[in-house]
Nucleic acid binder design. Sequence first.
DNA 1: GTGCGCCGACTGGTCTGACCAGTGGACTAG
DNA 2: CTAGTCCACTGGTCAGACCAGTCGGCGCAC
Lengths: 252, 252
Amino acid sequence: MTKRPQFEPVQPVRAYQRIVEQVEDALARGDLAPGQRLPSERELVAQFAVSRSTVREALRVLESNGVVRSRPGDPNGPEILPYSSSALRKQVTRLARVDELTLSELIGFRMIMDGAAIQVASRLRTPEELDDLEATLVAMRDAIDVDFAAFSEADLAFHELIARISRNSLIQTCNEVVRGVVLGLIADKIAHAPNSRALMLESLHHHAEVVDAIRAGNGHAAARIARQNMFDYYAGYVPDSEQETLRALIDD
Amino acid sequence: MTKRPQFEPVQPVRAYQRIVEQVEDALARGDLAPGQRLPSERELVAQFAVSRSTVREALRVLESNGVVRSRPGDPNGPEILPYSSSALRKQVTRLARVDELTLSELIGFRMIMDGAAIQVASRLRTPEELDDLEATLVAMRDAIDVDFAAFSEADLAFHELIARISRNSLIQTCNEVVRGVVLGLIADKIAHAPNSRALMLESLHHHAEVVDAIRAGNGHAAARIARQNMFDYYAGYVPDSEQETLRALIDD
DNA sequence: GTGCGCCGACTGGTCTGACCAGTGGACTAG
DNA sequence: CTAGTCCACTGGTCAGACCAGTCGGCGCAC
């Protein structure tokens, strides 16, 4: 990454986008609060001095962002949805904008979330879930002989199961999302690495160790192995300067 | 949770929403792939047999979901954006719909993230940042004499600082976001609790312990205290049946 | 032949004005 | 006081128009 001047593509700002920003800003400032109502569309037309089409396009964006909801015929106007959304959504969208996050931040996040999920799972898992977990290991073993995509798929199933056992859908969702982003960034490199097969085998081995530790009820060890595994698996793609932060996450 | 028949509120399906679904389905099926182009708006008008306003409202939703992007004048039509799209977006949206999350999931998430941030921070913190941290403690002490809102503000500053020291903006973001949601759900109850002042003092005390542990470089202890503190602070608002999950998070 | 500039057929962004099926509050008849 | 009606208003959708931008190709000058 050289530091030569990097120019952003110039793009026009649309009217509906400026409306969205104004509403979201008002919400962030507290001028507008959940439970309140937005003026009716025709009122907004007057206030923003644009056409109703433009107002409605802005409302569609806000609606899809979980900020407001419209109901036909409701004289009170569009409803501003309970807290949740606006702030949360904005941040989460930023989450999806990968270019603002470094790879090490994403991987660190996964180490934390996955480790924690495994730790909780080792306490809460039922015997049946333990069986499921071991079945997933077998599937991973088989997938290695197919290709990296198949292995990746099986690995996803493993982590989904872990997150589900941890009884926290927020962990589950975050894990899935961030995992997808990380893989999108480096899956190609792993798949085409000369030692790709060795990497997969090693990963499988570590996963088996994790399951063993879970079976033994040793959540601490299970989480540690999982973090170490993730570090080994991904750290090579992170600049040296950022590896220290990740290393600090492995142990406790 | 009784199992009596539960009816969903019936709501009209909008035309633009059906267009969004059709496009996302096509994407999920693979009939449409990133890098491809959507037909022009006027073409879509013909295909979907709706007006251009409707097509455009659908495009705004898709655009805000990161599925497509339009560029004025581009004869190729709206662009289907790389990767990110459908699957990722769907997950992210689910994350934003807080009402599907239980309080214990949110609090558990915070215990994990905050604990991890503190652990990393205790390794990476500079002497200056340690000073900042202690300054925040003083601010929290002063805020107790004002009101709960002030205390909450100071507490936020503390956790923001921790997250910043941990050098992971993803942790920072998630912490802020989920903290806001949790507070939105129960801030009132805490503020009006009869022992509100005692709660704040106790919380302050634990924060000071955390800082001590960070100063000593004992990340493990710091994180443990922080998780315990958060459990004590919030667990009372969580149903008994879900407290076990949280308790499993405290230790390791 | 090659390069350049112009042009025109398109695009998306915005506007206007209209119609419809709903909603909910005011008003009225009992 | 209630039950029913009514009406002003809402959001959803439509048709048609204009504008500024984009891009590919045509033709001109060299």
